[in-house]
C-alpha cells in the first residue's frame, strides 16, 4: 500500500515537473515553423488556401462589407505602414501637389490606359463609411470617397484568362543595402470588381492625406489592411503572380502573410 502511495505521489510530482518543464523551456522547439519555405510550414500554409476557397464559396461576390453611420466615426484614420514615402518619384509628385500624377492600367488588357487625378475625380464616385481591420488586430472606422475600380478596369478591357490585379505603389516600405523595396500587393478579380473596391482620393470628407496614402489608395473592404495599397500608381492585370517580388503576390505576402487576407 505505502509503496503504491509513494508511486502515486511520485507520478504526480513527475508529471507536474514534466508539465512545468515544457512551459518553462518555452516553445522554441516550434520555431522552425517560422522558416519560410520549411516543408512543414508549406503544409500548414495550405489552410490559407482552404480559407480562401471556403470564403469565396460562402460569400457572394457582390456581398458588401458593413457600412457604418457618420456618428460611428469617432477619430481620425490611424496611419500605419509607410506614412511618408521618400522615393524621388513620390517626392517630386508630392511637391507638385500630384498634378502630374497618373494611374496606369496595364498588363492583360485590351488597351493600356492612364488617368490623372482630375479625370478619376470626374468619374462616378462612391462614398462609404467602413471599418479598417489591421492584421495586427486593431480596427478604425473612416469615410472613404473614390472611384469604383471595376468600371476603370472595364475602360482598359480586361482580357480573358486574366486572374489577378497587381497593385504597384510608390512607397519604399523597406530600405535595404541593395536598394528600396517598394510596396505592392494583389487581389483576385472578384475583389477588384467588388462594388466597394474604390480608388479612394478622399478620407473623412477631406483630400486623402499623405500619411493615409495620397494621392490614391485602393480600398478592398472585405480584406485586412495590407490589402488596401496606399500610394498606388499602377494596376497590372496578370494571370500569374510569381514574377513579382518573391512571388507570393505582395510585400507582406512575400514576408509570410497569407495572400487572401480575408481573415
Amino acid at each position: 500500500m505505502s509503496r503504491l502511495i509513494v508511486n502515486r505521489r511520485r507520478f504526480l510530482l513527475g508529471s507536474a515537473a514534466a508539465g512545468s518543464g515544457l512551459v518553462l523551456s518555452g516553445c522554441n522547439q516550434f520555431d522552425f515553423l517560422a522558416q519560410r519555405g520549411n516543408p512543414v510550414r508549406e503544409v500548414i500554409e495550405q489552410a490559407n488556401v482552404l480559407t480562401y476557397s471556403a470564403q469565396r464559396a460562402l460569400i457572394g461576390d457582390q456581398v458588401l462589407a458593413r457600412e457604418y453611420a457618420e456618428s460611428e466615426i469617432r477619430q481620425g484614420m490611424k496611419p500605419n505602414g509607410s506614412t511618408e514615402p521618400s522615393t524621388p518619384e513620390y517626392m517630386f509628385l508630392r511637391q507638385a501637389n500630384f498634378e502630374p500624377y497618373r494611374l496606369t492600367i496595364k498588363g492583360m488588357v485590351e488597351r493600356e490606359v492612364s488617368f490623372s487625378l482630375a479625370e478619376l475625380r470626374n468619374m462616378p464616385s462612391r462614398t462609404q463609411i467602413t471599418r479598417h481591420d489591421c492584421v495586427e488586430g486593431w480596427s478604425c472606422i473612416a469615410k472613404w470617397t473614390g472611384t469604383p475600380l471595376g468600371p476603370v478596369l472595364d475602360q482598359a478591357g480586361v482580357k480573358p484568362g486574366a486572374r489577378f490585379a497587381v497593385y504597384h505603389c510608390f512607397d519604399n516600405i523597406q530600405r535595404t543595402v541593395s536598394g528600396d523595396i517598394l510596396y505592392y500587393t494583389s487581389s483576385d478579380l472578384v475583389d477588384a470588381y467588388h462594388p466597394q473596391s474604390i480608388l479612394a482620393y478622399g478620407l473623412n470628407d477631406e483630400v486623402l492625406p499623405v500619411s493615409n496614402g495620397a494621392p490614391l489608395r485602393l480600398r478592398i473592404e472585405r480584406a485586412l489592411g495590407y490589402k488596401q495599397p496606399k500610394y498606388l500608381h499602377t494596376i497590372e492585370i496578370v494571370d500569374d503572380l510569381s514574377p513579382f517580388g518573391r512571388g507570393k503576390g505582395g510585400y507582406w505576402e512575400d514576408n509570410g502573410y497569407d495572400w487572401y487576407g480575408g481573415i
Binding site: C27, L33, T51
Partner: peptide, 25 residues
Amino acid sequence: FPGAVTIPSFRDLATGRVVHFFFGW
C-alpha cells in the same frame, strides 16, 4: 506575453497566423 508561451518564441505575427488558422480548421 513572454516568448516561453508563444509560437514562435520570437515576434512573428505571420507565422502565428499560419499556425493558428491551420489548427483552427
